[in-house]
Simulated assay, not measured.
Amino acid sequence: MATTLHDDKDVLVGRAERQMGEHFGDSGLTIRQKLALTCRILFDGGHDSGLAGQITARGEEAGTYYTQRLGLGFDEITEQNLLLVDEDLNVLEGEGMPNPANRFHSWIYRAREDVTCIVHTHSLHTAALAMLEVPLVVSQMDTTPLYDDCAFLKDWPGVPVGNEEGEIISAALGDKRAILLAHHGQLVTGGTVEEACNLAILIERAARLQLLAMAAGTIQPLEPALAREAHDWTSSDRRDKANFAYYGRRALRHHPDCVTEGTAL
């Protein structure tokens, strides 16, 4: 006999949140493993653009972070070939050099203590939208984690290898989790690697949906209160972990070499 059919929505939301807390926990993967998996997940998700883009995560010591080696594509990253660098991009662990454009990651990490992971890519549809100098419009339920949470930098500051670009991009990002960079690409941040990976997948999907909708007609806005409700509901840590585990399992089927043999999700 059903007992919840007359429960208020907030009661059902609380029930679902408790259940997610019971069923979805941390994977036990290391930061290196999560980062390597993120590179493969996003490669499969259309974020590949040759050697462009950087995916980073804070290291154990303050002022350090992991990143991929310049010269390797996202589909070549493993937990073993990641670099550990300091804020000046000096290599502390690993062989090779980081992408000089990692410099603006240092600025974001300094400005945002809540950020543990940064994903910056030139994914196809976000790059196309950036060419139009049009902000991201969130008007579909699946992409509501980005509702009122994606900044827009309309003026392209040039190749982001200087400190000036680091100041400009980190200031434009502000307290939001994502930013669309005109004539450039996208950048998302997360308090966890899982969160940043999920947002990177979503921002590319949101840009693709926006371009398709713009070609067909006029995009209609979401009702703000409902959009904010959906943003909060879909932005939980447990949901991030569940999504990442699914994407990770899918990536491991295609790229078993990116983490230590026998790693499972």
Rank of each mutant, 00 (worst) to 15 (best):
residue 250 R to A: 08
residue 212 L to W: 05
residue 253 R to W: 05
residue 240 D to S: 02
residue 244 F to H: 01
residue 248 G to P: 06
residue 238 R to G: 05
residue 221 P to M: 08
residue 226 L to F: 14
residue 224 P to F: 14
residue 243 N to Q: 11
residue 256 P to A: 05
residue 240 D to G: 00
residue 213 A to D: 09
residue 224 P to M: 11
residue 215 A to K: 14
residue 244 F to W: 03
residue 228 R to I: 10
residue 211 L to E: 07
residue 233 W to Q: 02
residue 249 R to Y: 13
residue 247 Y to T: 00
residue 228 R to W: 09
residue 227 A to K: 04
residue 223 E to T: 09
residue 229 E to V: 03
residue 232 D to Y: 14
residue 213 A to E: 12
residue 259 V to Y: 08
residue 234 T to A: 14
residue 253 R to H: 12
residue 236 S to C: 02
residue 243 N to P: 00
residue 253 R to C: 06
residue 248 G to Y: 03
residue 234 T to R: 12
residue 216 A to P: 06
residue 215 A to V: 05
residue 235 S to I: 03
residue 234 T to Q: 13
residue 213 A to V: 09
residue 215 A to Y: 09
residue 236 S to G: 08
residue 237 D to L: 05
residue 251 A to S: 03
residue 221 P to Y: 12
residue 242 A to D: 00
residue 211 L to R: 12
residue 222 L to M: 15
residue 217 G to N: 08
residue 234 T to S: 12
residue 247 Y to F: 11
residue 259 V to G: 11
residue 242 A to R: 00
residue 212 L to P: 01
residue 224 P to T: 13
residue 225 A to G: 08
residue 245 A to R: 13
residue 217 G to I: 08
residue 236 S to A: 02
residue 238 R to K: 14
residue 228 R to N: 12
residue 252 L to N: 05
residue 258 C to Q: 10
residue 247 Y to A: 03
residue 241 K to I: 10
residue 232 D to M: 13
residue 219 I to H: 05
residue 225 A to C: 00
residue 214 M to N: 15
residue 257 D to H: 07
residue 252 L to V: 05
residue 233 W to K: 02
residue 229 E to I: 02
residue 236 S to W: 00
residue 228 R to L: 14
residue 258 C to H: 11
residue 219 I to D: 02
residue 233 W to V: 05
residue 229 E to M: 06
residue 250 R to H: 11
residue 254 H to K: 13
residue 213 A to F: 06
residue 215 A to L: 11
residue 218 T to D: 14
residue 230 A to F: 03
residue 222 L to H: 06
residue 237 D to G: 00
residue 228 R to M: 11
residue 226 L to T: 15
residue 250 R to F: 08
residue 259 V to T: 13
residue 238 R to D: 08
residue 215 A to S: 15
residue 240 D to C: 04
residue 216 A to S: 15
residue 239 R to D: 08
residue 224 P to A: 13
residue 233 W to F: 07
residue 230 A to I: 02
residue 220 Q to W: 13
residue 235 S to W: 01
residue 251 A to E: 01
residue 230 A to L: 07
residue 240 D to Q: 04
residue 213 A to K: 03
residue 216 A to R: 15
residue 212 L to C: 10
residue 249 R to S: 13
residue 257 D to G: 04
residue 223 E to M: 03
residue 257 D to F: 10
residue 221 P to N: 11
residue 255 H to Q: 06
residue 227 A to D: 09
residue 210 Q to V: 12
residue 233 W to R: 06
residue 242 A to S: 01
residue 210 Q to N: 09
residue 217 G to V: 12
residue 236 S to L: 03
residue 210 Q to F: 07
